[in-house]
Simulated scan of single mutants.
Amino acid sequence: MARRTKAEAAATREALLDAAEEIFLERGVARTSLEQIARQAGMTRGAVYWHFRNKADLFRAMLDRVRMPFQELVDEADDPALADAPLEAIRLACRQGFARLEQPRYRRVHAILIHHCEVFGEIDPLAMQNEMAEESCGALIEYFTVASEHRLLRPNITPELAARLLQSSLGGLFHDWLRNHEHFSISERGMELVDTLLKLLAREP
């Protein structure tokens, strides 16, 4: 019985987050109340407070469902040889990330964070975006550092510069895609960008 209750509670929490995605995307975060989210999910406001302290807590939980830690993306490739191939690890992690972004949930939540959320109470979308960007850039620097130690980068390219170049390119692509996601595939265009940039950064044979 306890196991079933735990499973039901988890399902309720997921249903509330699903409802929040829908209504945040439609109305914006600031103009959405917890009562509206509860109604959207067919529940009471008490159910929301059982799982989340406030709207900021719910919003962060929604973001957590689409976080993409760089190492997790590398691990998804499930290739032990990547430990000695840092540039290929970066390439495959980008491919995994693009594939996730094309899933509706990932696109919706990132669209909410960037286009449908303003500073409101404990919710600071710019701070959240900066946190995610710094986390990603830090991981890229680690992999480009290994590449540099293996003499895989051009001599005039530092790991920090390589990471910033790639992150800036991906950021521009990401924002273009969110505005026009029906016009092109981020996986196709993204991999073209990543492959080209990694070739430009790599030491010539």
Rank of each mutant, 00 (worst) to 15 (best):
M191D: 07
A30H: 13
T12S: 13
L58N: 06
S187K: 14
A9S: 05
H181F: 15
D18I: 00
M43C: 06
L16W: 09
R3A: 09
L152V: 02
A111T: 00
A41M: 06
R95M: 11
F120C: 11
N130T: 09
R67G: 08
S136Q: 14
L193N: 06
A202W: 01
G28I: 11
A89T: 02
M128L: 15
R189N: 14
G171M: 08
R100N: 13
T196C: 03
A7K: 15
S185C: 09
T5A: 12
F70V: 03
S169P: 08
P205Q: 09
L173C: 05
L200Y: 08
V66C: 06
N180Q: 08
E118F: 06
G190V: 04
A85F: 00
R164A: 08
G121V: 01
L58V: 05
L173Q: 10
F184S: 07
I186Y: 14
A47L: 02
E14C: 04
E21T: 01
I90C: 00
E160D: 14
T32L: 11
D79K: 15
I157C: 00
E35M: 14
A11T: 09
L201A: 00
C94Y: 12
I141W: 07
A9E: 05
L153Q: 02
C117G: 10
L63V: 06
L63E: 13
D57V: 02
I112W: 04
D176T: 12
E76N: 06
V66I: 10
T44M: 10
E76M: 13
I23S: 07
L140C: 04
T196M: 07
P80T: 02
Y143W: 09
